[in-house]
Amino acid sequence: MKTLQSVEQFETIKAQGKTVFVFSAGWCPDCRFIEPFMPALETKFNDFEFVLVDRDQFIDLCIELDIFGIPSFIAYKDGQETGRFVSKDRKTQQEIEEFLLAQ
């Protein structure tokens, strides 16, 4: 999974194709919970580009996007938000798959 390097890169990536931004942080236990199955989801949903966003590094972007719980997901297609799975709750593989299928 690619890691976001700048807000400018966020704007560029979201404008092209189908992208899922995965908001996370190193200290987040629920974020560590999803790590083992994320590679399988990336393979299964390979029509999306998955981009990891470090919540602590991009706190202003998270505030702008109303990301107050992690892990959270926002999907874009050609610059338009198509859906979000944003909450403070732990996410299961099935819940993430259902979110991706709806995009």
Rank of each mutant, 00 (worst) to 15 (best):
D66G: 13
F68L: 09
L61M: 07
F58M: 09
I70T: 00
F50E: 04
E95W: 06
F68Q: 15
F45A: 08
F33E: 09
S72C: 08
K44C: 01
T82A: 06
F50V: 04
F10M: 07
L100A: 06
I70P: 04
A25F: 03
E97R: 02
Y76F: 14
M38F: 13
K91V: 09
P71I: 03
M38K: 11
I96C: 08
T19S: 15
F48S: 06
G79W: 05
F33W: 12
T3W: 09
C28S: 13
I74W: 06
E49L: 13
F68V: 07
K2F: 14
I13E: 02
A102Q: 15
T92C: 10
L101F: 12
E8P: 01
F68G: 14
R32D: 12
Q94V: 12
P36W: 15
F45G: 01
F37V: 02
G17C: 08
K2Y: 09
D56M: 11
E8V: 05
L41G: 00
I63K: 15
A15C: 01
A40T: 01
T19I: 06
L61Q: 12
F10H: 04
D30V: 07
D89N: 15
I59S: 14
D78H: 12
S24H: 08
I13M: 09
M38Y: 00
F21W: 02
R84C: 08
D30E: 09
V22R: 05
C28P: 03
E97W: 03
E42T: 03
K88D: 00
R55I: 09
Q94N: 13
F68K: 10
F99L: 07
I34C: 07
S6H: 04
D60W: 06
R90E: 13
G83V: 02
